[in-house]
Amino acid sequence: MYAQAAIRRTARPCLLMPRADSIYVRLPNWVGDACMCLPALELLRREGHPLVLCGRAWAQDLFSGLTGHDGFIALGRSFGENRQTLRRSLAGHGSVRGLIFPNSLSSAALFRLAGIRSAGYRGDGRSLLLSWALPKPHGLHEVEVFYRLAYETLRRWQPGPASRPPEPGKRLALPLTAAHHEHATQTLAQAGITGPFVLLAPIAAGLHHGRPKAWPGFGALAEALGQRGWTCAICPPPHEVAVSRAAVPSATVLPPLSLGAFAALTTHAAAVVCNDSGTSHVAAAAGARQVTLFGVTRRERTGPWSPDAVCLGAEGQWPAVPEVVAAVERLAQGDTE
């Protein structure tokens, strides 16, 4: 009842949002989810609102091409320190509002206690902490879920214009910087990779309904591609180097890169082969040529948001190695059919 009353109160004309007001955006804590927010962020920017992105430190580099004219606030693990950081930043922004993409109670509490009136999906007791508590849609891709939150929030804050797209575009369109591409190019040169290569990402952290999310055929794939003359490379983060080497012992190991430089690296590859994981969404965001493998998750909900991505396998059925080899070679030759 209280949440419904709060929503009714926010619909009054006196609460319309001036277009110059900044929007503090709480990004998701997972790389893939953050990438899938990109169409929603672009919608907010199109409306003329400066954005202040708030998220984990890794997101600052990944989104540095997007936040050149906006701002970024790195959040750590301490709730109290994050609250103080946000409150200090508000001094230079005048009137602001918040949009919270994560579904956690803590993310809503952080913005509320920092003094930011915010919108987000209700649930888990969040309604009393949100000034605009929206019902979460079901049965949509995560990109559409995030976009719907931004779209419906803008409808409440600033009705119209009629030209506002009700659905996200077909691509994530992550802007990368010249520094990102330069770092990726230097890394390849230092590793002695001067020709076409296939970038493999064999690790997918965690379980899905108790089942591993990582395709077990990466080692055999690298051997098969090597026999066909392809150079295979991996570029794992520091905490995944050992397990990645074990999964693909024949691949060239590139040093760990920042997420922005890694995104650029995916665009230099003839093909990226990855699990349904954060790497899949980074590759899609960068516009890379990618093959994403499914065996325990549903591509309709979490698959790469790219019309050019090749998706193999299905929930409950991993693809075979020869199928992946054939897809890589077709993709590398420019055939996405």
Rank of each mutant, 00 (worst) to 15 (best):
A6T: 12
I7R: 15
R8P: 00
T10P: 00
M17P: 06
P18A: 14
R26D: 03
L27A: 07
P28I: 02
D33Y: 00
C35V: 08
L38V: 03
A40S: 10
L43D: 02
L44V: 11
P50N: 11
P50H: 11
L53N: 05
C54P: 10
D61E: 08
S64A: 14
S64M: 07
S64G: 05
T67I: 14
G68T: 12
D70T: 05
F72K: 08
I73G: 09
S78I: 13
E81D: 13
E81A: 15
R87W: 05
F101C: 03
S106K: 14
S107G: 10
S107D: 13
A109M: 15
L110C: 12
L113Q: 12
G115Q: 05
I116S: 04
G125W: 15
R126T: 14
L128S: 15
A133C: 13
L134W: 14
K136V: 12
G139Y: 08
L140H: 06
V143L: 04
V145Q: 04
L154T: 09
R155L: 13
R164S: 06
P168R: 04
G169M: 05
K170Y: 04
A173T: 12
L176V: 05
H183A: 14
A184S: 08
A184D: 07
T185Y: 04
T187P: 04
L188I: 13
A189C: 14
A189P: 09
T194V: 13
F197C: 08
F197A: 07
V198N: 02
A201T: 01
I203Q: 01
A205L: 03
L207R: 03
H208I: 00
G210W: 01
R211T: 00
G217N: 00
F218M: 01
A220Y: 00
L221Y: 03
A224G: 06
Q227F: 02
R228N: 09
P236R: 01
H239I: 03
V241K: 04
S244M: 06
A246P: 02
S250K: 09
G260I: 04
G260H: 05
A263Q: 02
D276Y: 03
G278S: 05
T279F: 01
Q290E: 09
T297S: 12
E300A: 15
W305L: 06
E323Q: 15
V325N: 09
A327Q: 03
G334W: 08
T336I: 10
E337C: 12
